[in-house]
Design a protein around this nucleic acid. Structure first.
Lengths: 264, 264
DNA sequence: CCATCTTTGTGCACGCGTTCACAAAGACAT
DNA sequence: ATGTCTTTGTGAACGCGTGCACAAAGATGG
């Protein structure tokens, strides 16, 4: 799903399948909402509905954490919030650096979800000297030269890359060399990292392409079954030659995928 | 993965497993790069390395598309680019609407990856009347009232939600009612959609929490003897970072004396 | 204290995805 | 043509994740 490397020595140590870990934040969000409404307990059925998953799956997920429920009653909301937070490591403070303060980087810096869950923006870093000192989301942007110093001084172990694709690997290397061991990559590139470093990637382009695939499939099925066109009329524009159009050569940027503004 | 609805017999119709579909954009990106360098053919081993996957997996993935390789030689780059593009539906033009033009929405509008692969920003939509007419990425923002009209006029079938969480479900309902059948959701909420609508979500907060989990596990690999006594009063500030100092192998680590921050 | 009812926790089976390993297919040299 | 060498395409085994179905556990009421 998301680790850039195919490797997964990951969750070998103590139970908790990767798929379960990926769902814990979902449960936590639903539980936090319940907590704010002062709901004392919740059944697996209710919570599963709120999180958008199967109730059996939810119970099995929780069983990896331990037996935190009460049969006949359900789960204590507050207690479960604490247990999941602890399991996810959110009871600690995680300083995070964001590299590449373009449109996307600025959006991330302003994203409220950071501060609300144990994550703290330790620094914003950009390669453009003109950005230095300029405040974004109340935090002054610092130049790339400061990167290593910041990471070491603040003990940063999580880095967010929001640079253009061309700069991503280089930034990644510097982050890792300075001590970062977890990277969230928004640049459309496959990052190469040494053993022991986790990479998760968020790729808008890929998500859209997956949607397009399903969309095309849906359109094709309808066409095969019936001729009744639902709402739209001009939805298709088959305007591509056998192999000359989109593939030719540099008809757009390096890959056309540039998430942020950052001079190389 | 990402389909909002629990049920998803998914790609039953025409082979092609979901996991393979999710990798096709990755291959396509690597192939495009090769194409720009005028590389005529590529072996499964080389291409797999470029895409960051196993070569056997790549070959099996391609086998679902058909036999496009030549034994003893490899794959024709141009031909494969075309085949994958066609399979993903990228030879069509996909108009996309972005709803919620805040920091993130603006970043998405400026994202080059849209236009480069058959996706076209048909409209930017925001609920704030003050935003109306204001150009973002060269496109004037339109008010939410126009949403249905735009979707129907342009035959939009893909919508991107970049609104706050509170507005996401409402926006989603309107998109679906107007004819959108694929949604990319950036809001931290579980969207409820009817059968036949695909939802993929991109959630920064969840990604970070998953990274935090692994980070914590790495930090406390040897000091696994915590076995925290269940706190009777939940949501209390627990003692924090008790593991960063005991191990000698861990060179990094947030010098464990940061204050605990519980989610609110 | 016993009966009943609710809800958890989990054993089990099934299907998907990954990986191995190798035969088949073609290129290429002689 | 024939042999050798490279690389694909895939059969088969394995492991993980999912969901069913049910027994165990505890609450609740009489």
């Amino acid at each position: 799903m998301a680790t850039g490397r195919t490797h997964r020595p990951a969750t070998r140590s103590r139970g908790i399948p990767e798929a379960t870990v990926a769902r814990l934040p979902l449960y936590l969000r639903a539980l936090t909402a319940l907590s704010e409404r002062s709901v004392p307990t919740v059944s697996s059925e209710e919570l599963a509905a709120a999180a958008g998953v199967n109730s059996a799956k939810l119970r099995k997920d929780f069983s990896y954490l331990g037996s935190y429920g009460t049969r006949g009653v359900g789960y204590d909301v507050e207690y479960l919030v604490y247990q999941i937070s602890r399991e996810l490591g959110l009871t600690q403070d995680w300083p995070v650096v964001i590299v590449g303060i373009g449109n996307l980087g600025a959006a991330l810096a302003n994203y409220g979800g950071f501060a609300s869950r144990g994550f703290r923006v330790a620094a914003l870093i950009d390669a453009d000297p003109g950005m230095a000192g300029k405040p974004v989301a109340g935090i002054p942007v610092q130049h790339t030269d400061e990167l290593e110093k910041i990471i070491q001084d603040d003990g940063v172990s999580i880095g967010v890359i929001a640079t253009p694709a061309g700069a991503a690997q280089q930034v990644c290397d510097r982050l890792v060399a300075a001590g970062v061991t977890s990277i969230l990559n928004f640049a459309p590139t496959v990052l190469n990292v040494p053993e022991g470093v986790d990479v998760r990637k968020v790729d808008l382009s890929i998500e859209l392409q997956i949607l397009a695939f399903h969309e095309q499939r849906k359109a094709g099925e309808e066409a095969a079954a019936d001729a009744v066109a639902p709402p739209a009329v001009a939805r298709k524009q088959p305007h591509v030659g056998p192999s000359a159009d989109s593939t030719g050569s540099a008809d757009k940027g390096p890959d056309g995928d540039v998430p942020a503004v950052m001079p190389a």
